[in-house]
Write a protein that binds this DNA or RNA. Structure first.
Length: 1070
RNA sequence: GGGCCCGUAGCUCAGCCUGGUUAGAGCGCCCGCCUGAUAAGCGGGAGGUCGGUGGUUCAAAUCCACCCGGGCCCA
């Protein structure tokens, strides 16, 4: 049969394969083929379909795909449901942008219904693009039946989960300080905050709080990096254990070169300031004297003047504007006195609750100061530059600013809209994840993390500092919280766990019920508590979108309302794979919900990938304009190459630089080699009319090269299988590449070339069938090994080699018992010697085409070189014979290399001296050691027993032959040229020139020719002596030597060394 | 301030867990070779204080401590 010619272009190959997949629906077939098999469960982490996929998504999706394809081939059924994350802030932001509005008031003015309609339409704005890219890179997923987080079924499962959480008493409403985005108008969960830390340089201020009724008229000095919280100040926290001092400002500045204070504010000579003793040096900019020292406890209870007196009505709160004791205060930064704004800090809020401070806001939901705030600040946005200036002016006017300086720190920003977050006390719904912290830690420890340190470190550390999950979002497009609360008594509440339950209470629902706002907001009923008479209304919030993604394991099946059996089978998942940024994102939300609802780890294994950086190692970002378009990459290099590059370059969890040079290299190295190897195979299988239905001899009877490459193949099958099993895709990729390039192409095919044509020049019968059968098997198996990583070329090759069967429907190869350790070792030795022999040739300046008489070789002790191996080596190096120096008895001396591993424990500090002595041992003693004797040797006056294992003995040679050595091997070439050798060399040169002429003339490899050669006597004699050889190599039926003979041939002049030769090649028509 | 990762040749990375003699690949560069796969392939060479300092040890890229630089994540 004829094997298909392989297209030159990668794109053509990949398009061929894509077409085949579409036509036969290979993905479905691959699932159907495993219908009765055990499930290997994968969950697709849902991408948000409201942004274009980037090149890093190829990395993440490749990992997912490789493992799924491998497990399928290994005998599992691996269903892969696509999924889309469709709710939450990102979608709302996109809608706002499209509608040209911004912020909650404008949304409500427009109407929630209209707004949510736009959200819904926008969700799949980029879905096509995601699907297109995913298909093109060969990421197999069931895109026809995806789970969609906004679907009513999906949301109902979420409701069920929340009702369960309520039943367990883990759902509560709390007034807590949360990171709040004033632009989005919602609090963020801790794992969202985790996404948005940025380094900022902001003003921090040292404030003088004027004590009331103080003998020195002293001011307590406090420090804050958030001046906007000062109007909300209600207390000053000190530590009872820290020592505080009163310092009096003297006239001169302490820092002569840099007179302080900088900027406005400052302190007048004679003014008395109070702060922690340890902070004086760092904080006080003037020269000063310490006039008193006291523990913080002495300050507690003192009253001071409010910096913004009217901002808060503290009538009836005795603790307001007093010094308070708190255990969170340290003297490590600031002044050892912490300004406390009850509503704007977690510690502050806790302290305020404890001592009874008023809970009043000075900042509104929109991030602007309320009317009560003096100084013209009302209505100003707290984070604006002008606001900062206005606050500063107020502080200066009221003589409370001591010092202002820029302070660099990292501060959380909204991960979507980039606004600086404000810590604000908000009413919010929580899941009490802290109640299951230990269980989460235990489950996390059971997960097979790749790499492990992400599990133990990043995730583990995070979990041990777990805080309750702030679940609610005061937004519009999301899973509505199914919580109905009584208008009379907030303790009367119902968490609705299904639409059926809702219908029972609120009346029948339409068939196509949509649970989204605002429709759901209108549903209510009379409070069911006896005699209450209140009305049950839904709380206005929606759920954090992470709640949706965390619900995927059950909600994708609409569990528990249907598909119980599927869910049971598919939970927990066997593996997931996402970016490291999901540690506190999806990985966490999965773990939290799974622990609360099922007390199980939601996935058994996870492969974490890091980012893809640009070529210079910087993060890719749209704003920087250094993001690589995934389509460009695929057009330039193909999907296989891109996938393989990501997998083979380094482990997925190492940050990667996008390296076009490495991509090209990947193509040239592995993929081009495979294409060439196939082309070679197909060409000669065609010439020799071989097909894989041809009977070959049993492996035992085959040539050394065949048995060797098959032994290697088996070893590689085991290594690659084990690597895939262990999620070690990088090792799998590298092992395959080494085999395909180094072993198969660069040695097996290279050494076997002439075994692929039946008419061998030497006239001996060849084992062509065996060679074809062996190469065919190697190619088929390599395709299968490679299939998960490079699904395109592997499938193309597999189909071409096996009558059209897709590689993705094949089983993963298993090794058979064909290992031949001695043969593999011997072949390694030969390859070592071949390398050294080439080096020796280069040393001697003798080209390989010139035959030489002999190679004198040394192999490491205990190893030999069979005649067949020697012949192989002789052929490779173009020498007449290979002589083992040991056997020829020539030129061999011995030298020793001390083995530190065994010597060290025996000789301790004397090891280096002993080693030196042993390395100098004479051959006579080494002979005895080699024979297995233990020998007594004197080292610096001390006799030691040297055992055979203490040294490695290497054979050495003293020779004037061209030689190279290394690793216990020596290759020495006899470079003396006899007349015969010269002639033969010339004959080979002629062959080489003729082959070039054949190719230049566009001849087929099997075309027969008439050959004419003319030149000097030396050349003509060489040709005459080797006519048979030349004819055989060049497929010349007729060889005409000499000017007079080669008449009628079109002669070309070529150079061979110093001779000029004319050669004529003419195809013989048959 | 804390957690995790990384720092080895001009570049991209192995090796480190389990210490052992002259630290390996690939790319790039220089030189050479081969070619019945050929806009390929092979070999050789130059190139490294293994981020720094200290420690443990007969012996440290490897183990420990501290520091420096980079990244990610948090406070």
């Amino acid at each position: 049969m004829a094997y298909r010619p392989i297209p030159d272009s990668v794109a053509a190959i990949e398009e061929d394969v894509l077409r085949a997949w579409d036509e036969e629906d290979t993905f479905s077939l691959s699932l159907a083929a495993r219908d009765d098999a055990e499930d290997f469960v994968f969950i697709e982490g849902p991408p948000t379909a409201n942004a274009r996929p980037g090149v890093h998504h190829i990395l993440a999706r490749t990992i997912k795909d490789v493992i799924a394809r491998y497990r399928t081939m290994a005998g599992f059924r691996v269903p892969r449901k696509a999924g889309w994350d469709t709710q939450g802030l990102p979608v709302e932001l996109e809608a706002e942008k499209q509608l040209g509005i911004s912020g909650k008031p404008e949304i409500e003015r427009l109407g929630i219904q209209k707004f949510n309609d736009v959200c819904r339409q926008n969700v799949f704005k980029y879905q096509d693009e995601w699907e297109k890219l995913s298909r093109r890179i060969g990421y197999w997923l069931d895109y026809d039946n995806p789970y969609v987080t906004y679907a009513a079924d999906f949301i109902e499962s979420g409701w069920w989960a929340l009702a369960e959480i309520e039943k367990k008493g883990l759902l509560y409403r709390g007034y807590r300080v949360v990171p709040y985005c004033p632009r989005c108008g919602t609090g963020l969960s801790s794992h969202e905050v985790a996404q948005g830390y940025k380094d900022v340089n902001e003003p921090s201020v040292f404030i003088k709080f004027h004590l009331i009724d103080d003998a020195d008229d002293a001011r307590i000095l406090s420090w804050t990096t958030t001046p906007w919280t000062l109007p909300g100040n209600l207390g000053l926290a000190v530590s009872e254990d820290i020592v505080y001092v009163r310092v009096r400002i003297l006239e001169a500045s302490k820092h002569e070169k840099k007179p302080a204070p900088q900027g406005p504010g400052g302190a007048r000579p004679g003014e008395v300031l109070i702060l922690a003793k340890d902070r004086v040096e760092a904080v006080i900019k003037h020269s000063y004297e310490i006039i008193d020292e006291m523990p913080g406890s002495e300050l507690v209870g003192r009253r001071y003047e409010a910096p913004f007196p009217a901002a808060i009505d503290a009538e009836g709160f005795d603790a307001a504007w007093t010094v308070l004791a708190a255990d969170f205060v340290t003297a490590e930064d600031g002044t050892g006195v912490v300004h406390t704004a009850v509503m704007y800090g977690e510690d502050d809020f806790r302290l305020g609750t404890a001592v009874g401070l008023p809970m009043q806001h000075t900042v509104g939901e929109d991030g602007r100061f309320l009317e009560s705030v003096p100084g013209g600040l009302a209505g100003m946005h707290v984070k604006d530059k002008e606001t900062e200036r206005a606050i500063r002016e107020w502080l200066v006017e009221n003589d409370v600013l001591y010092f202002r300086e820029m302070y660099k720190h990292s501060y959380p920003h909204c991960w979507r809209c980039d606004s600086a977050l404000l810590y604000m006390a908000r009413d919010s719904w929580y899941i009490r994840t802290t109640a299951v912290k230990d269980r989460m830690l235990a489950h996390n420890a059971s997960i097979d993390w790749h790499p492990p340190e992400t599990g133990t470190g990043r995730m583990g550390e995070w979990l041990s500092n777990n805080v309750d999950w702030a679940l609610s979002r005061e937004r519009y497009w999301g899973t509505p919280l199914p919580i109905w609360v009584c208008s009379n008594e907030s303790e009367h509440r119902v968490v609705v766990g299904s639409y059926e339950e809702l219908a029972e209470r609120a009346g029948p629902l339409p068939a196509d019920f949509d649970p989204h706002r605002p429709g759901i907001d209108a549903l209510g009923w009379a409070c069911e508590e006896d005699g209450c008479g209140g009305r049950m209304d839904r709380v206005p919030e929606v759920a954090d979108a992470w709640f949706d993604s965390g619900s995927v394991p059950f909600a994708q099946w609409h569990y528990p309302f249907e598909n119980d059996d599927v869910f049971e089978r598919q939970f927990p998942a066997d593996y997931i794979a996402e970016g490291v940024d999901q540690t506190r994102g999806w990985f966490y939300s999965l773990l939290a919900l799974s622990t609360i609802l099922f007390d199980k780890a939601p996935f058994r294994a996870v492969v974490v990938n890091d980012q893809v950086l640009d070529a210079t190692g910087r993060k890719m970002s749209k704003t920087r304009g250094n993001a690589v378009d995934p389509w460009e990459a695929i057009e330039a290099y193909g999907a296989d190459v891109t996938r393989f590059y990501f997998m083979s370059g380094s482990n997925p969890w190492v940050p990667k630089r996008w390296d076009p040079a490495a991509l090209r290299e990947t193509d040239r190295k592995l993929f081009a080699t495979l294409r060439h190897t196939y082309r070679f195979f197909a060409l000669y299988a065609g010439e020799e009319s071989w097909s894989h239905t041809t009977e070959a001899s049993s492996v035992r009877e085959r040539h050394d090269l065949d048995r060797w490459i098959l032994a290697r193949l088996d070893a590689v099958i085991d290594e690659v299988g084990a690597a895939y099993d262990g999620f070690d895709l990088t090792t799998a990729a590298r092992r395959i590449q080494e085999f395909a390039v180094d072993d198969l192409s660069n040695w097996y095919v290279r050494r076997s070339r002439d075994r692929f044509w039946a008419t061998r020049p030497d006239g001996k019968p060849s084992e062509t069938q065996d060679a074809f059968a062996t190469l065919h098997e190697c190619l088929v198996v390599t395709a299968r090994l490679l299939a998960p990583l490079a699904p395109f070329l592997s499938d193309w090759l597999h189909r071409a080699l096996t009558d059209g069967a897709s590689v993705h429907l094949a089983d993963f190869p298993t090794s058979t018992d064909r290992s031949e350790p001695e043969l593999v070792q011997a072949m390694n030795d030969v390859r070592q010697l071949a390398g050294l022999g080439r080096a020796a040739r280069e040393e001697a300046g003798v080209r390989t085409r010139q035959p030489l008489a002999a190679l004198h070789a040394v192999v490491p002790e205990g190893r030999g070189l069979s005649p067949r191996m020697a012949a192989l080596l002789a052929d490779e190096l173009n020498v007449k014979e290979v002589v083992l120096l040991r056997e020829s008895g020539n030129l061999v001396g011995l030298s020793a290399k001390a083995q530190f591993g065994t010597l060290g424990p025996k000789h301790g500090a004397r090891t280096p001296i002993v080693a030196k002595a042993l390395n100098a041992l004479p051959s006579k003693i080494l002979e005895r050691l080699r024979a297995g004797e233990t020998v007594a040797v004197e080292v610096e006056g001390v006799e030691i027993q040297v055992e055979p294992g203490d040294v490695t003995i290497v054979e050495e040679t003293q020779t004037d032959l061209a030689m190279a050595s290394g690793g216990g091997f020596v290759a020495a070439l006899d470079t003396e040229l006899t007349e015969l050798l010269r002639q033969e060399g010339t004959a080979r040169e002629i062959v080489n020139r003729v082959q070039r002429l054949r190719r230049d003339a566009g001849l087929e490899v099997s075309d027969r020719i008439r050959l004419g050669v003319a030149g000097s006597k030396v050349v003509e004699r060489a040709v005459s002596e080797h006519t048979g050889y030349i004819a055989g190599e060049t497929l010349a039926d007729v060889v005409l030597v000499g000017e007079g003979e080669a008449v009628g041939l079109d002669m070309t002049e070529v150079e061979i060394d110093e001779f000029s030769v004319t050669i004529g090649v003419e195809r013989i028509e048959r």
